[in-house]
Simulated scan of single mutants.
Amino acid sequence: MYPEDRRAKILNYINSRDFTDVPQIAEKFKVSEITARRDLLILTKSGLINRVYGGVKSSPPASAAEPVFTEHLKEFKEQKQQIAKEAIKYINDGDTVFLDSGSTLLELARLLPQKKNLKVITWGLHILDMLCDLARKGDFDGEILCCGGTWRKDPDLFIGPQSIRFFDDIIINKAFLGIIAVSLDFGWMGSSLIEVEATKKIMSISEKVIGLAVSGNFSKTAIARIGTLKSLPVVITDSGIDKRTIKQYKGKGLNIIIAAQ
């Protein structure tokens, strides 16, 4: 069972009982108390449960104004899996790969056991957790690196000046970036200025940059501009994108690859 699937079951269990503690979770889900404690910590930081004396209890649902990364895992899952299956084709054995934060990148991380001798760099806590879990089971063959920074609740990543300095002496073969917004007028965008700065740093040290975007993220805007459409060499999207949109963006210089269904 993948860590995020286990945590979803733990969350349902807590919501059905209102209160539980680490030993109960460890026994119920047949994991160590260390793993149970880590799962509860992640759920607490995500705002899904509350820590109380002696254990944890269920938390009221987050408001629409406060999105939680866990919710993104459920959205457009089939489209994200399509994109991931196409993206894995670009990774070769022995590559040094960067995986951005995001649920589409998490689907790509699931497929990395297909490759050998990888060096994977990420700032996404959810991706780091999955890769470490795969490595403990002997299912992932490679090294895992995580840059420093301050943890942000949504989109569940470490970011900050330390993150940018981490990449000063690193060369990346393939960088996979999650695209949350792209438009004909403004190019492609990110959710914060510090993420934009860090993304530009990663692009500058990468031999190949590949954007991953569900079709619904086209013709959307976000607060911070990363670059023009031509600055993004290639974007992989799902088969739900319409022909008119493809023509418009290709006309502006964006190379779009449609993942197979």
Rank of each mutant, 00 (worst) to 15 (best):
residue 127 I to N: 11
residue 200 K to D: 01
residue 170 I to M: 10
residue 174 K to A: 03
residue 174 K to D: 09
residue 173 N to Y: 07
residue 187 G to R: 10
residue 137 K to A: 14
residue 172 I to G: 15
residue 131 L to R: 05
residue 145 L to N: 10
residue 135 A to H: 08
residue 121 I to G: 09
residue 176 F to S: 08
residue 125 L to D: 07
residue 171 I to E: 07
residue 191 S to A: 11
residue 153 K to H: 15
residue 125 L to M: 12
residue 194 I to S: 13
residue 134 L to E: 08
residue 126 H to P: 11
residue 157 L to S: 13
residue 140 F to A: 12
residue 182 V to R: 03
residue 169 D to H: 14
residue 188 W to L: 04
residue 189 M to Q: 10
residue 169 D to Y: 06
residue 165 R to D: 14
residue 156 D to Y: 14
residue 136 R to F: 06
residue 155 P to L: 12
residue 129 D to R: 15
residue 148 G to M: 01
residue 152 R to S: 08
residue 149 G to S: 10
residue 128 L to P: 02
residue 187 G to C: 09
residue 163 S to C: 12
residue 192 S to E: 08
residue 187 G to K: 09
residue 127 I to L: 10
residue 158 F to P: 06
residue 160 G to N: 09
residue 133 D to N: 11
residue 161 P to K: 13
residue 191 S to F: 12
residue 135 A to D: 08
residue 143 E to M: 01
residue 143 E to W: 00
residue 185 D to I: 01
residue 167 F to P: 11
residue 128 L to T: 08
residue 129 D to P: 07
residue 124 G to W: 05
residue 164 I to L: 09
residue 154 D to V: 10
residue 198 A to M: 14
residue 202 I to A: 11
residue 157 L to R: 15
residue 117 N to R: 09
residue 175 A to E: 08
residue 197 E to V: 00
residue 146 C to P: 00
residue 123 W to E: 06
residue 141 D to N: 15
residue 142 G to Q: 01
residue 148 G to H: 06
residue 155 P to F: 10
residue 150 T to L: 10
residue 143 E to P: 00
residue 182 V to L: 15
residue 152 R to L: 07
residue 203 M to N: 01
residue 160 G to H: 14
residue 190 G to L: 14
residue 163 S to I: 05
